[in-house]
Each structure stands twice: as C-alpha cells, then as structure tokens.
C-alpha cells in the first residue's frame, strides 16, 4: 500500500462504506500517530474473533498503533491465534503456511527492495510462539543468519492455544495444559538470547502491561530493520482460555510475571544499531 492508494475516486466516494471514509479521513496513514494517540484516530484493527481477555488481541492492537509508516508496511503472519485477527487489519498482510513466515517475508522484502529502491518498505513478521520457536524455527533462524532486514515479532502465549492447548517450546517448564496433562518436561526456549547470538541487531522482550515500552520496542525493531539488520521482539501475551484465568486478569498475570522475573524484560542492541537509534531518536522524533 502507498499513500495514493488511500485516496478514493470521486465517482464512487458517495457509495463507500463509512468505515473506509473514516479510515481515509482519520486513519493513521502518514500521520505519525502512536500508542499515546489511541482513541483519537481510526485504528487499523477494531473487530476480531479472538477470545475475551486475549492478551494477543491487545498486543496486536498496540503493534498496529506503533507502526512508524503503516502505509508502507506489509505484515506477514502464520498459522495460530494471530492469524484469526490479521485478516481483519486494514493493512496488506500475507498469511504464510505454518512456520514459513520468515522465508515468505524474505522473498517479499527482497522484491520490495528491488521494486522500490528509494523507499523504505517495512516487512513485519508477526507470528505466535509455535510458528516462531517450534515449527518455523528453521526459517526464523536462517533469516537471521542471512541478515535479512526483517522485523520479527513473536506473540508469546506460551501454548498452541487455538488447537486445544498443547505445550510449545515457549511454555514454561512444569506448566500443565489441556493437552499436556503431566506438565512440560523442559525449559522455555531462550529465544531472545538465541536471536542476539544469531545476528539480530535489536532484540527486546516486552509485555502489553507497559504499552509505551512495547511501542518503543516495536518501532525500534522496525527502524533498525530498515537500515541495520534483522530484529526480534518477543511479546508476552497471556492466554486466559488455556491458562484458565479470568479474562479481566490478563494484565495482572503479565504484570506478575514481570515482577517475579519469570518473564524477564530484556533489550539487546548492537553498537551499530545503538548509534543508528541515537541518531534518529536524538531529536525526540518518532521517525
């Protein structure tokens, strides 16, 4: 998508549904809105079929509000809970086969770089923990090894949540789920550390409890991926359905894990990315 694509033809402006008129008139395209502006503009996602209290839904909303250039962003997703929400977003998005998201994003990014050599086209990979750390780990790791300029975001709900609740590599040790009744037998994969060692220029793990922190991580990941190299953000998104807590307790659970360090928040930045970020964030500008 580009900005001209967001202009309606005069001949049909009178029959366009109000939703689209609103998106053009008060959407985030080219306006530089962020998380602090939520509620004052037409958001890229409004309705979704996810469960009540889903942490992932909140994270998707915050990610969409954090994009530095939504009009020049393509989202690549994969199978999982997030793939139920992404068809609803008002952005170009590709649903890849389960686990293929970073391979698909690689091809897309390379094609966009050839097609638009003078422009930044952000390719944002957003997938669940199953697609990123288990089934698609091969594709994810190799995209990092190759130094592809992609921002990879993992929505970590610590389970295969929409298939009944199987344990994933990101489930914590000992956790009991519907389809893991005897408890998980090994530790949670330390993917932020693996990302750091695999060539990611920027790595962060965050939760939706602190929206501004999440926004900062997402923006940094996208901006660093434009110029420096691959980036990775891991977002903890508690799942009330499979971890069996009340929908209104989602943020409490996330906060608790932050507090007791069972979900440590981290940020690794390479010196090159650090100097790049210092240059663009120095003036307090978003972009």
């Amino acid at each position: 998508m580009t900005k001209p694509m967001l202009k309606m033809t005069a001949a049909f402006a009178d029959v366009m549904p109000a939703e689209y008129v609103e998106l053009v008139q008060s959407g985030p395209f080219g306006k530089g809105y962020g998380v602090a502006d939520l509620g004052s503009f037409k958001e890229l996602i409004e309705e979704h079929p996810l469960c009540a209290g889903c942490g992932l839904a909140l994270a998707v909303r915050l990610i969409m509000a954090s994009l530095p250039s939504p009009e020049d962003t393509v989202v690549v997703g994969s199978t999982g809970c997030s793939s139920l929400a992404f068809p609803q977003i008002a952005l170009q998005n590709i649903h890849s086969l389960f686990g293929n998201q970073n391979a698909v994003a690689t091809g897309l990014k390379r094609a966009l770089t050839l097609r638009f050599p003078d422009k930044h086209k952000d390719v944002l990979v957003v997938a669940g923990d199953g697609a990123t750390a288990d089934i698609g780990l091969d594709m994810v790791l190799h995209s990092w090894f190759r130094g592809e300029k992609l921002a990879t975001i993992m929505l970590d709900n610590e389970a295969y949540a929409n298939t009944g609740g199987q344990e994933s590599g990101m489930s914590p040790e000992g956790c009991v789920l519907n389809m893991a009744p005897t408890g998980k037998k090994f530790k949670k994969i330390a993917l932020p550390e693996i990302a750091r060692e695999s060539g990611c220029a920027y790595v962060a793990s965050v939760t939706p409890v602190q929206p501004r922190k999440l926004e900062k991580a997402v923006r940094r990941a996208i901006l660093v991926a434009r110029e420096v190299g691959p980036t990775y953000v891991q977002i903890f998104v508690p799942c009330p359905t499979n971890y069996k807590f009340k929908p209104q307790e989602t943020l409490v659970k996330a906060k608790q894990k932050e507090k007791d360090q069972t979900y440590p928040l981290r940020e690794f930045i390479t010196p090159e990315a650090q100097s790049y970020l210092a240059a663009i964030e120095g003036g307090g500008k978003r972009d």
């Binding site: 967001l6 202009k7 033809t9 001949a11």
Partner: peptide, 15 residues
C-alpha cells in the same frame, strides 16, 4: 481497481 485512485487514469475509468 476503480474505487481507489492508485494510479493515473483510474479516476477517468471510475467516472
């Protein structure tokens, strides 16, 4: 293709 003015000539075709 005719609802959004994504390139030159689209507005005329839409009309």
């Amino acid at each position: 293709n005719v609802l959004w003015e994504w390139k030159a000539g689209v507005a005329e075709k839409a009309a």
